Amino acid sequence: MKRRQFLAHTSALAVGASSVALISHASAQNKDDAVVVGCTAALSGPLGSLGMGMKAGVDAAFSQINAQGGVNGRTVRFDVLDDAYVPARSVENVRKLLGDSNVVALMGCLGTPNNAAITPVVEEAGITHLAPLTGAASLRRSDFRHLFHVRASYTDEIQRLVGSLVSMGIKDLAVVHLDNPYGREVLEDAVKAMTQVGIKAVATVALATDGANMESVLAAIKQAKPSAVLLGTAGAATTALVAGLRKQSTMLPIAGVSASLTQDGIRQLGGLVQGVGLTTVFPDPWQAKHKLVRDYQAAMTAMGARTFDSGSLEGYVNARIMVEALTRAGKGAGREKVRQGVASIRNLDLGGFSVDYSPAAGRVGSKYVGLGILGADGRLKV
């Protein structure tokens, strides 16, 4: 992401100025013979669209695999329980899933506070949790034997983002972060990254997860007069925040981590997203030059999707890795065999995106971080 591109896109804008189960049945084959992968995620609430996007990608991948005969001759199914981004509900959901002997692993449980709440339960139960939807460094401890991350960490994303902004000469940064464990961890990463390059934030402002204090947040940013705003936010609150910042000044550069804006939020904002910079931790879902993306697009199209986005691509990628692990675990394998299957993956190339769970990788499959700028059409220009 170059300064000229980032600021040009922004300038162009100025001119135009109780747990509810949602079960995925990807195949009509005998349900009792299915290999079941469980998940707790927000399918409603402030991060509902993020959870639904992830689920759509997983469903597409499993449907594609099942059409080819499944895994070791068995259908694979994704069972998701809605927690509405409430950690206590996440714990309830995981306990329910653990009580089902057909659930051989967890995948894609969403949210930093939610994963912090469920991880002790996961570790005690000894069940694999592949690809938690969080980049929190606090959840990447070596003693968490059953957590296998796919995406790069928020620390990696923030360092890349801050470094890029500073290299453009943009140094008076304000940070808006969610007022929860996720947001506070991103803020901590941002402060450290800025300290490393010799700058200090002109303002750090906490935004309620439901956006209830939006007016005071916008006022604080306006008073600080930053050169750019860095987003440590996620979900519906980000959508309203970006709209409010654009109302104050269409010229103010805005940039955030990959979790900041959902595809739903991008659609709601319309042309207001033009010029917003975002980190990326997966390939561009529209770049069909990668075999992985072509496979993803074919799977989504087969499910009736008319558009592609990073959230469903992440779900698709995670599901493909899970299928590889299940295949390695063998027919009829239990939870420990699935953990061994994931741990045995070395430099798995999915067609433009690779993951590696060798001991040196520390159970983090990818370190890839890219940068892009959203165009008026809502697509990232990288």
Rank of each mutant, 00 (worst) to 15 (best):
I23H: 11
S24F: 09
I65K: 13
K55Y: 00
N72G: 14
F78R: 01
C39D: 12
A41Q: 06
A60G: 06
F78A: 00
V80M: 06
S27H: 10
N66E: 12
N66T: 07
I65Y: 06
A41H: 00
N72R: 10
V71N: 03
P46Q: 12
G45P: 02
I65T: 15
V37Y: 02
G38R: 04
P46I: 15
L47H: 00
D59E: 15
G45L: 05
A21V: 14
V37D: 02
T40M: 07
V76D: 01
V20D: 09
G48K: 02
G48I: 06
D32V: 10
I65M: 12
A21C: 05
N66V: 05
V20Q: 11
V36M: 10
D79F: 11
T40Y: 13
C39T: 14
A26V: 10
L47Y: 08
T40C: 10
P46K: 09
H25I: 08
Q68V: 05
L22T: 12
G53R: 05
D82A: 07
D33G: 09
N30H: 10
Q29W: 12
Q64P: 04
D32L: 08
D79Q: 15
A21I: 11
R77T: 09
D33E: 15
N66Q: 12
A42W: 00
L81A: 09
V58L: 09
G38Q: 05
S49T: 15
S63L: 07
D59P: 03
M54Y: 15
G69S: 10
T75P: 07
V35M: 10
A67P: 11
L43C: 06
I23M: 12
